[in-house]
Computed example of a mutant assay.
Amino acid sequence: MQLKKRQTGLTFLGLLFVGGLLAFLGVIVAQIVPTYLEYLAVDKAVKKAAAGATVAEVRNIFDRAAAIDDIRTITGKDLEVGKQGDKVVVSYDYSREVHIAGPAYVLMKYQGSSQ
């Protein structure tokens, strides 16, 4: 007597569930990636601004770089400028909220310095 082999695999409903889950994750990633790219631009602008000698000059350099790189989350006024030895150290700390659905948000916290 021959035994029937049981088929294994993904059902149509399983396929819809997995596809919906992947689409949902794709939408979230598509909203988070621009905030990370802006973080990279902020980090680059902060390192460039650390070449300034005074606090006003550092903030001015950052604001010019922010205008070029379209940085809207943080301005030169939000930077913390200090000295460590004879080097100017510029640091920043900010957060971005990404709306998911209804009352659900993803909070992205970014921080760094020119060191």
Rank of each mutant, 00 (worst) to 15 (best):
A67D: 13
K5A: 13
D43V: 03
I71W: 07
G85Y: 05
I61M: 14
L13R: 06
V98G: 03
G20N: 02
I28Y: 05
V27D: 04
K44S: 13
V42R: 06
A104V: 07
L79W: 09
D70W: 02
Y94N: 12
G26S: 12
S91Y: 08
M108I: 12
F62I: 11
I68G: 04
Y36L: 11
L3G: 06
V29G: 15
D69R: 05
H99P: 01
L107H: 06
K48D: 00
R96D: 02
D93M: 05
L3K: 15
K77R: 07
V81G: 10
N60D: 15
Q84D: 15
T75I: 05
F12C: 02
V18Y: 06
I32T: 11
R72W: 00
Q115A: 13
G19T: 04
M1F: 12
V33L: 15
G112P: 11
L13K: 05
G19V: 00
A49N: 05
M1V: 08
V98A: 02
V55R: 08
P34I: 08
G9A: 10
I74L: 15
V98P: 04
K83Q: 11
R64A: 03
T73I: 09
L21K: 10
A30M: 06
D86W: 07
K44T: 10
I71G: 00
S113G: 13
V46N: 10
Q7Y: 05
F62A: 14
A23N: 03
T8F: 01
Q111A: 14
A56K: 07
A45M: 12
G14N: 12
E38A: 01
V58C: 03
F62P: 14
L3R: 12
L22K: 01
Q7N: 08
F62G: 14
V90A: 06
D70A: 11
M108L: 15
F17K: 01
L3F: 10
Q2M: 09
V88H: 00
I61Q: 13
V55D: 15
